[in-house]
Design a binder for these strands. Structure first.
Length: 476
RNA sequence: GGUCCCGUCGUCUAACGGUUAGGACACCAGGUUUUCAUCCUGGCAACCGGGGUUCGAUUCCCCGCGGGAUCACCA
């Protein structure tokens, strides 16, 4: 174990979308590759925004995507509690240190008064700075007023592991609120206290915090806490690329992707390469690849768009890479209802035939139902088929009858013997495979598409194949 | 508007002063004696603009332009 400690600190206000998962993943990878520790912490200091059940949901999302952590609300650890609302005394203690050092004071104004200051500044076309209104003799803090930080405005230059060196002037530093009038700390204050107490070495979070960095730095200094390493992730943008991906514009819950048949490993590979690559032409990464190859230095500085088409390709890729047994395990919840009575061996063979065709596990029903129940006849498949629409009913039935006779005579029912019989049929009828095979395929599956014909018939079995051909002949 | 960040094919990206600017997704065409998919082959397609620095700039600097983030008793 090294002393590298990273954390993921979401607030339990909803679900986790790909942006959140990526931040968690990167923090997790930094810890894992260094043999360090990854901690989960809930930042629930805004009770108004808290969403019932979302803490559990967040934990489930991390579990589902294989992002493991070593310390957290449900795991414990040496630096708990890992829920901010249970750490209120700790913030009080640090707040009082600041007060006695003369670096924090009670805010005597009402929020309406502060708002008035703000509007006044706006009217004068000046940036609003609370410290321009810093009271000369603030009241003693009794916990009912907000507690403000007495900032020490100055220029800062700091290094960001992703963004590089950043410099700002004193004009962006202000007296921000440390503890709200409801007794809860703000993010600004609490995360610094917690990261310090929890010995966090790398603060990895979204880019939206960069603009607050000078204020944070000023607070670190006043608190006498040494700066950790910082890494701010570029945003994942929406599909139009015009703003950061948010829940408002269709950002999906990662658990929904799992429900929709995406493999966790595909999701992880895709999300990792949204803003990161290893410098080679490698396109997909396993978790192990990422643990060894990931580096903050190679994270992109600009935002990346979320491209569903690429995710779909990555998912198909991972599905094809899976062994049949692994795929079978993962596909467990995705079979069509009609398959419930089928046995494992048969389902496995079906799965083997469609493995190359699956883009998501959820494609399974659409591709396999006719293996488990009698398909309903859909003549439009024939009448809309550009090869078959030219055949009249009589010709069609003659071909089907010839197929029936030929297959019925087969002593042995294997993919090879079926193929041999079909080839022979091609010769005796003088018909093109495009016509004959399409006809047989549709007559036996009534599906838009299906695996290779001989494999399909073999798996269907001789009896069902013959019976379906017969039914097709009788149909009109 | 102030502040900060960013700017290579439609999209994700490679390139760390010298390349016919590479790969992948998507798209298009062809092949693998049926469909769909896989797989293979080929194709289309990019350095935001203008100045510098340099023998030489996609790459370094400056100015524009464009995009994003942030300016809460939210995180």
């Amino acid at each position: 174990m090294t002393n590298i400690r990273t954390r993921f600190a979401p607030s339990p206000t909803g679900f986790l979308h790909v942006g959140g998962i990526r931040t968690a993943l990167f923090a997790h990878l930094v810890a894992r590759q260094a043999g360090g520790t990854f901690v989960l912490r809930f930042e629930d200091t805004d009770k108004k925004r808290e969403v019932e059940g979302s803490a559990e949901h967040l934990i489930a999302s991390l579990a589902a995507t294989g992002i493991s952590y070593d310390e957290g609300p449900d795991k414990g650890g040496d630096y708990g509690p890992y829920i901010q609302s249970q750490r209120l005394e700790i913030y009080q203690k640090w707040a009082h240190k600041l007060i006695s050092a003369g670096r924090a004071y009670a805010d005597p104004y009402s929020s309406a008064e502060v708002q008035a200051f703000r509007e006044q500044a706006q009217a004068n076309k000046k940036a609003f700075l609370y410290r321009d209104h810093r009271p000369e003799n603030p009241p003693v803090w009794d916990g009912t007023q907000p507690l403000r930080f007495k900032s020490d405005p100055k220029a800062y230059t700091w290094h960001d592991e992703v963004m590089g060196d950043i410099t700002t002037g004193p004009e962006v530093i202000d007296d921000l609120i440390l503890i709200k009038s409801d007794g809860y700390p703000t993010y600004n204050f609490a995360h610094i206290v917690d990261d310090s107490e929890m010995k966090i070495t790398h603060v990895i979070r979204g880019q939206e915090f960069i603009s607050s960095m000078p204020n944070f730095l000023n607070l670190y200094d006043a608190l006498g806490v040494s700066w950790p390493l910082f890494a701010h992730m570029p945003h994942i943008m929406n599909e139009q690329g015009n703003k950061k991906l948010g829940k408002r514009d269709g950002a999906k819950d990662v658990l929904d992707y799992i429900r929709d048949g995406y493999l966790p490993e595909a999701l992880i590979s895709f999300i990792a390469t949204l803003g990161w690559n290893d410098g080679t032409t490698k396109e997909v990464f396993t978790h192990d690849d990422l643990v060894t190859g990931f580096s903050l230095a190679r994270v992109q500085r600009s935002g990346a768009r979320f491209d569903e088409k690429r995710l779909l390709w990555v998912n198909g890729h991972f599905i094809r890479e899976l062994s049949l047994d692994d795929l079978y395990d993962k596909a467990h919840d995705f079979w069509p209802e009609q398959a419930s009575k089928a046995d494992d061996a048969f389902k496995k063979r079906v799965l083997q035939l469609v493995q190359d065709r699956l883009k998501t596990l959820a494609d399974l029903p659409m591709m396999t139902t006719y293996f488990f129940e009698e398909p309903s006849i859909d003549m439009s498949l024939i009448t809309n088929n550009k090869q078959l629409k030219k055949l009249d009913v009589q010709a069609r039935n003659e071909y089907l009858q010839a197929t029936y006779d030929c297959l019925a005579a087969l002593p042995e029912w294997t993919a090879e013997s079926i193929q041999a019989a079909l080839n022979e049929l091609l010769e005796t009828t003088g018909q093109k495979p495009g016509v004959l095979f399409s006809l047989i395929r549709i007559a036996t599956t009534w599906a838009q598409f299906s695996p290779q014909l001989n494999d399909t018939l073999e798996l269907l079995g001789k009896d069902i194949t013959l019976q379906r051909i017969k039914t097709a002949i009788d149909a009109r």
